[in-house]
Simulated assay, not measured.
Amino acid sequence: MSDSNTTDFTSPSTFILLGIPGLEAAHIWISIPFCIMYTIALLGNFAILFIVKTEPSLHGPMYYFLCMLAVTDLVLSTSTLPKILSIFWFNAKEINFSACLTQMFFIHCFFAMESGIIVAMALDRYVAICDPLRHSTILTSPVVAKLGLAVLLRGAVVTLPCPVLARQWPYCRTNIIPHTCCDHMAVVNLACADIRINSYYGLLVGNLVVSLDVVFITVSYTQILRAIFSLPTKDARLKTFGTCSSHLFAILAFYIPGLFSVVTNRLRHNMTQQFHVLFANLCLLVPPMLNPIIFGVRTKQIRDRMFQVFTHKGI
C-alpha cells in the first residue's frame, strides 16, 4: 500500500482516509462520543418519523417539513458516520474513488437541503402566524410536496458540479486524504491541476445558498415578530412565540456551527489540522443529533404522543 501512496498515477482506484491526522492513537476514545451522537440521531429521527406517521393529528405542513428534516438528517449522518467509525474501530481507511465522489455529493447535497428545509419551515411559521386563516389553503399537501421537491432539486443541482469537476482532475502525487470523509476541497487539493474553478465554485455557491437562506429566514422572522408584538396581551405573545421556539433552536443548531466552520476555513493557517477535521465532523453530527431532541422536547404534540407510546408499552 505504501507504493500506491507514492507512485505517480492519474486515476486512483482508491483513496486513503487518514481519520484525524495526529490523533490516530486516540481514535478509539474519539469514537465513543461520535457513536453516541450517531445513535441518538438515528433513534431520535426515526422516532420523529414514526410518531408523525402514526398520529393523524400531526399530518400537517409543519410536521411534513419536520419529517423531511428527519430524513435529511438521517442521510447526512449515515453518509459519513459508518465510514468514520470503521476507520476508528477497524482501521478501514480505503474508500473507492467512485464511492468517495458519491459521499462528497451526499454530504454537500443534503447539507444544502437541510438549509432549504429550515427555510421552508420558516415559511410555514410565517403563514401560520401572519395569515393564520389562509394557512391550510396556502400550504396544502401538494404545495408542501412541491416545496420539498424544490429543496431536493436545488441541493442536487448546486452540488453536482463538485464531484463532476473532481472526477476530471489527474491525481498524480498521493491518494491520502487527511480527513475522515471525502470533503470536496480535501479531495481536490490532491489533484495535480489548477483547481481554482473548484475553489471558487464551492466558495461562491456555498456562501450564496446559505446567505440567501439566512436572508429569507431573517425577513420571515422580522414579519413574524411584528405580528407577535401587535398581539394585545402578553400571554398571547408568549404563546404565539412559543410555536416558533423549536424552529429557532434548530436554526441556531444548524447555522452557528456552519458559520464557525466558514470562519475556521478562512483562518485554517492559524489552526491545527486536528481541530479543523474534528469541527467539520461535529458540523455533520450535531444538527442531526439535536433536531429530534429540540422538536421532541419543545413541540407539545410530539412530546405527548411520545409519552403515550412509552406508557402504552409500559416503559
Rank of each mutant, 00 (worst) to 15 (best):
T39A: 12
A156S: 14
V188W: 04
V151G: 03
V151T: 12
F241G: 12
V144T: 05
Y64T: 11
G22P: 00
C35E: 05
R226Q: 13
D131K: 15
R167Y: 15
C283W: 05
P56D: 03
Y38D: 02
A92T: 10
L23C: 08
T39I: 06
R305Y: 09
V286Q: 02
L81M: 14
I315D: 11
T174R: 00
E114L: 13
T78R: 04
W89D: 05
T54F: 08
C109P: 00
D304F: 15
D194C: 07
H27E: 03
N207H: 15
P178S: 09
F241Q: 07
F111M: 09
G155W: 04
D8N: 07
L190G: 01
I176N: 02
V286E: 01
L212Y: 05
T174W: 00
L101R: 01
S79L: 06
S11Q: 10
G22A: 01
T102W: 13
L23G: 01
S77N: 05
T174L: 01
C244E: 06
P287H: 05
F15T: 02
F254M: 08
D304E: 14
W169D: 05
C100N: 00
C283E: 10
S245Y: 14
F307P: 00
P288H: 07
H27G: 02
S141K: 14
Q274M: 10
A99D: 09
F90S: 13
E94D: 13
S211F: 15
C35H: 05
I51E: 07
T233C: 04
I95M: 07
F260V: 14
M37W: 08
L139R: 06
H27P: 00
Q103L: 04
N281P: 05
F275L: 03
R226G: 04
T102M: 11
K93A: 14
A26Q: 11
A41F: 06
M1K: 12
P161W: 00
R125D: 02
L147R: 12
P257V: 03
G148T: 14
Y64V: 07
G258Y: 10
L42G: 03
V297G: 03
I117E: 09
C244S: 13
A191I: 05
L152M: 13
L69Y: 04
L43V: 14
A280W: 15
G60P: 07
V297F: 14
L165E: 05
I107M: 11
G242C: 03
H276C: 09
S115K: 12
C35M: 11
V277F: 09
F106A: 13
Y126P: 00
D235F: 09
A41E: 01
S86N: 08
C67Q: 04
T54Y: 08
K313N: 14
G60H: 10
H247V: 08
K234D: 09
L238I: 10
Q223V: 03
M113Y: 09
A47V: 06
C192D: 06
T7F: 14
L74T: 09
C192F: 08
V187N: 02
L81S: 11
T180Y: 01
P82K: 10
K93N: 15
F295L: 02
L23D: 05
T218W: 12
I217W: 03
G60S: 15
Y38S: 03
V52Q: 05
W169M: 10
F111D: 02
L49Q: 10
I228S: 04
L147D: 10
S211W: 10
P178N: 11
N5L: 11
I51N: 07
